[in-house]
Design a protein around this nucleic acid. Structure first.
Lengths: 339, 339
DNA sequence: TTGATTGATTTGAACGTTCAAATGAATTCA
DNA sequence: TGAATTCATTTGAACGTTCAAATCAATCAA
C-alpha cells in the first residue's frame, strides 16, 4: 500500500524532489544526464505520480466531463447518445484525457445543483455540453465556472462558446430533393418541438424551406425521437385526413417506428409510401426495407469537439475563447430501399 | 478564481477547520447547534469541498472506472457495450459516484500499461471489468492494485473476485426448447469462440446440452458478435450442405445480419427458416419480421454490479472479498415473429 | 581578474483536506 | 467533593505534488 513518491525517486536518483518534478513536466533547463538518471529511477521504482496531489496544486484536472441534458431520466438504449458518448470517450482517451459522464434532467433543479457541485468539487479540464435547448442563462452559468466548454449539437449565437454541429438543414434539403426526384409531392415530417438552437429546429427549417421552394405539400407531426413515438406519429397520419406519399422521420429511431407502423397497416414501402430517417445508425442497414437516411458524421464531430477542448485545455484557452470555434460538418444522403 | 475553503467556512462559523470537516463527514459527536451553524456558513459561502485535497488524504476516490476489454479498437456502435456502459454510468450517479470509462485492446501491451498507470495515478474507488476472457493472471494483476473489482459477464472461478452474470445457458436452453416446440429439428448456432469463462462459452454449452438432450441436429458456425458476421455466417450456411431449419444467432446484432441474409436469399422467415437472437435490444422489436430473442436484464445487472462495488467501497470491503458475491440473474424468452 | 549573466539544481512553503493526539467542558460515580 | 469518564472541539502535522525564491556552478564581457 505504501506507494513510491517523488521523494523516493529523488533519493534513488540522487537529486532533489523538485528535479524529479521537472523531469515529469519536462522543464526546459535540465541536463540530459540528470534527466536520464531520473527516468531510470522512475522505471526502476515503477513510480506513478499521484494525480490527487498534482490536482491539488494545479488549477485543472486532466479529466473531461460530458454532460447530457435530457427532458427525461436517461434512456440507456438511446443510440444517439450512446454513439456520441462512446466516441467522446474514445477521443478523450486518444488525447490522454479521461472522461466522466453526467446525466442531467433538464427540469430537475436537484440535478443541476449536483452537476454544479461536481464541477466545483472535481476541477474538470473541460466540459462537453450535449443535448438540445440549453438556455443562454444556463450556458452563462456553466461558463461562469471558469472551465473550457464546447456545445455539441446546439447553437447558441453570441454565447461565445465553441460549438460543433452538422449541417442539418442542408441534409434535410438533400433529403427533400431526393423525395421530390422520386415523384413524391406530399411530405410529412415527424419531429420534436423547435427549441431555439436545437438540431430539431435546424432540421425543421431545412424541411420547411426546401418543400416551400419546390411547392410541395408539407406537414409536420410531433415525435419525441423515440421509436415508439415514430410509430404512433405514423399511425396518426394514417388515421387523419390527407395521407402523405413520403414520411420523413427526424431520426432513424423514429423511422424504425414508422416502418413498423407501415408494416402493421399493410402498406408497401416504398411503393405506397416512402419512409426516410436521419442519422444513419447501424440498424438502418438491417431494417426491411433498408432505410434511406442522411448520414451524420457523429464520430468525426465528437473528435472535433474533444480536440477543441483538448486544445483549450492545452493552454491557448484565451485565444480560443476570443474567437470561439463554430464547426459545422457536412451530412450525406444515403439512399437505400425505403425511399 | 479564489475558491472558498474549509478555513473560510470555519472562520465564518466561528469554529475550527476540523469541526467543519467533521460536519462534512458527519462525525457522530457533534452538537446539533454547531452542526447547524456550520451548515449555514457552508450555504452562505457556497462552499464545495475540494476533491483533490480530499483524495490526497484518503486512500480512494469516489470515482469508479469501467474497463472494456476488446479484441479490436472500440466499436462505438456496439449496442451491447453502449447499453451496459450507460447503465453503469446511470447507476454510479445514483450511488453518488462518478464513472470513467477505459477501452483496452486485449492484445495491446501499451493499452495495458496505460490502464495500469491510470489505476495507480487516479485512485479509483473500484473497477468494473467487462468483456470476455480475461485471464486469471490479468485479473490477479488487477486485483493486486488493491482496489475493489467486479467482473461483469465473465466467470473466473476461484479468482475470489465478485462477478455478475445472467443465466445464459438456461436462456439458450429455453430458446432451443422453443424452436423444438415449433417443430424445428436442425439447429445452427452462430457464435464466437469459446474462451473459458466467457458468455459465449455459456451460451454454447447451453445450446449443446439442450440440443443433445432433445436429439436435435446441431451445428455451430463462427461469428464475431457483429451484424456483418451474422450475415456472412448465414450466407455460408446456405452455401454449404445440409441446411438448418432454425438459425440461432448468439446475439441480436448477428441476428439482424442473419435476417438480412435470409431476405437476400429470398427465404421466408419463419416459414422456411426460423431466426432468433439473444439480448433483446430495442431494435429487435423493429426488424421485419420482429425478432424472437432471449431477454437479458442488462440494466438490472449493471445496477447490481455497481451496487456491489459501492458496497465494497463503502467499507465492508473485507467482508465482501472474503465471500465474493456471485450473482446470476435470470433470462427470459421473448417470442416474436421470426421464430 | 572580476562582476554580471545564464543555466542547473535545491530549498522551503503552499495547495485544502483528513488523521492523530491534545485540550477543555460536562457528566458520572464513589 | 474529587477523580474518572465521556463528549465536543481544537491543534498541529501530514498527504505528494508544484510554485517561488534561493543557491551553486559555469560562462561571458569588460
Amino acid at each position: 500500500m505504501n506507494r513510491t513518491t517523488l521523494k523516493d525517486v529523488a533519493a534513488r536518483a540522487g537529486v532533489s524532489h523538485q528535479t524529479v518534478s521537472n523531469v515529469l513536466n519536462d522543464h526546459p533547463s535540465l541536463r540530459p544526464a540528470t534527466r536520464a538518471r531520473v527516468l531510470d529511477a522512475i522505471r526502476e521504482l515503477d513510480y506513478h505520480p499521484n494525480q490527487a496531489a498534482r490536482a491539488l496544486r494545479q488549477p485543472q484536472t486532466t479529466t473531461l466531463c460530458c454532460v447530457f441534458y435530457d427532458a427525461a431520466p436517461v434512456d440507456i438504449a438511446d443510440p444517439y447518445r450512446n454513439l456520441i458518448q462512446s466516441a467522446f470517450i474514445a477521443s478523450a482517451q486518444a488525447h490522454g484525457y479521461s472522461m466522466t459522464t453526467a446525466f442531467v434532467r433538464r427540469s430537475s433543479p436537484e440535478d443541476h445543483r449536483a452537476l454544479r457541485s461536481a464541477f466545483l468539487q472535481q476541477r474538470f479540464g473541460g466540459a462537453l455540453l450535449i443535448g438540445s435547448s440549453l438556455s443562454a442563462e444556463q450556458v452563462a452559468e456553466l461558463t461562469s465556472w471558469q472551465l473550457p466548454a464546447v456545445l455539441f449539437d446546439q447553437q447558441l449565437p453570441g454565447s461565445g462558446v465553441a460549438n460543433v454541429n452538422a449541417d442539418y438543414a442542408a441534409g434535410m434539403a438533400q433529403l427533400v430533393a431526393h423525395h421530390a426526384a422520386q415523384g413524391r409531392t406530399r411530405l410529412a415530417l415527424i419531429l420534436p418541438g423547435d427549441d431555439p438552437g436545437s438540431t430539431a429546429l435546424e432540421r425543421r427549417q431545412g424541411f420547411v424551406s426546401a418543400t416551400r421552394q419546390r411547392g410541395l405539400d408539407a406537414q409536420i407531426v410531433e415525435g419525441d425521437w423515440t421509436a415508439a413515438s415514430g410509430e404512433a406519429a405514423f399511425l396518426a397520419l394514417w388515421q387523419g385526413g390527407p395521407k402523405p406519399d413520403a414520411v420523413l422521420a427526424g431520426n432513424d429511431r423514429m423511422a424504425a417506428g414508422a416502418l413498423r407502423a407501415a408494416r402493421q397497416l399493410g402498406l408497401d414501402v416504398p411503393q405506397q409510401v416512402a419512409i426516410s430517417g436521419f442519422d444513419d445508425f447501424e440498424f438502418a442497414r438491417y431494417t426491411a426495407p433498408t432505410l434511406t437516411t442522411v448520414q451524420v458524421p457523429y464520430a468525426e464531430m465528437a473528435q472535433v469537439a474533444v480536440g477543441l477542448l483538448a486544445g483549450q485545455v492545452g493552454g491557448q484557452a484565451t485565444n480560443e475563447l476570443a474567437a470561439p470555434s463554430q464547426r459545422r460538418l457536412p451530412t450525406r444522403l444515403i439512399v437505400r430501399e425505403s425511399a
